[in-house]
Nucleic acid binder design. Sequence first.
DNA 1: AATGATGTACTTGTTGACAGTTTACAATGG
DNA 2: CCATTGTAAACTGTCAACAAGTACATCATT
Lengths: 220, 220
Amino acid sequence: MIRNLQRTTLRDQCLNALRSAITSGQLPTGHHLVETELAEAFGVSRGTLREAMRRLEQEGLLVAGSRGQLSVRHIEESEIHDIYRVRAALEALAARTLCEQPDRDERIATLASHVRRMHEVQEDLIEQIETDLNFHRALCELSGNQALLTTWLTLEGPIRISIMHAGLEHALHNMAADRHDLIVNTLAQGDATRIEQVLMEHMEEAARRLMTALEQRAEG
Amino acid sequence: MIRNLQRTTLRDQCLNALRSAITSGQLPTGHHLVETELAEAFGVSRGTLREAMRRLEQEGLLVAGSRGQLSVRHIEESEIHDIYRVRAALEALAARTLCEQPDRDERIATLASHVRRMHEVQEDLIEQIETDLNFHRALCELSGNQALLTTWLTLEGPIRISIMHAGLEHALHNMAADRHDLIVNTLAQGDATRIEQVLMEHMEEAARRLMTALEQRAEG
DNA sequence: AATGATGTACTTGTTGACAGTTTACAATGG
DNA sequence: CCATTGTAAACTGTCAACAAGTACATCATT
């Protein structure tokens, strides 16, 4: 088979480049993005870049000012709490749904492999964040509920900004692999009520930690 | 005050026009939208229209085919069930959160006024759908959790398509005002667990009804 | 020095055109 | 009659330029 040529549009390339520039913190929170500058920087036309930017706007990574100027979204402390409550509700549903699947054991095994991966990357900060998000995204994916996954994905942008904003070091405490072992083990037991409880607590503590990290930053 | 002039961009006008054309069923499910045709029909340039279409894509009203052609999203029976489960989880969270608010009684009163409005429009099919969606959107809004509302909004498009697809007549059974009275009354009692239960059942029955309506359509 | 007017630069909204690809169809040859 | 090739039409991807609005600096006036 020769046909492995991947044709990707300029728009999508801009989209990915911009997204990672934002979620990696290269473009700081609140920074105003100028179409002409960026278009020239990427070497594409404004129209092409605009489509990418509008998409990021709806992903919650950019916000539009009064006159249409897009800037990198800034997330307040109180919002973090809200976001994580929604996230908890979604992932609790995911866990519950996953347990109802006939091939539930296989799916849990896949999740377990994600946790193993988390154990392996304990040196690299960024990889830790990624594997953690991969785990939670996989939880939604393995629920088999497509709408659930898409819904969760709309939160991923804001979640990443929260993590970035609070500082990677602080976010890491949430991602101890052990705590994810607990989730997987509870899933394996199949007690839906208990799983929801575990996930809710997991998220609540994560949110709390991010928020206190933010407070310390504000003071220091 | 003279400055009540609302300047709205062509893009947003296209966006709204297209959105209502889709959710009203004027543009049938699966229909392929051609940029050049639509742009001419609206009297705007392709670039302007494209931005509106890309947004609708992410709202879940349009889907992109292999070569970038956008067409009106078609929702399968199984998806309806999935969508309504997510919706139930979100609204259950909304109800729970609303109960925690100090001025909870006022908020519930606002919800009650929405239900009254539902009683008033029992003649007009379309208005019934709208007031129903308004009620549920208000529930999320009144929870005070902004992220929750935005998340719910990402489901609104698919929900509307489901309703449209199953046929307005069938969807209406879900929207008997009485059933919403039950929700408000339960909210007023303040028992979080019971509210969640009521909402879950509300959604499950709604989904079931839409699905059987679809089956009948397929046979007929 | 404070205030108001004017013009200039910057940024987004919008457009029309060009280029590359896919699809449909007709023409040609076996 | 079928297969193949060539050709035209239909769309989307991409771009460069124009238009309009806002913010800022400069300058004149009192």
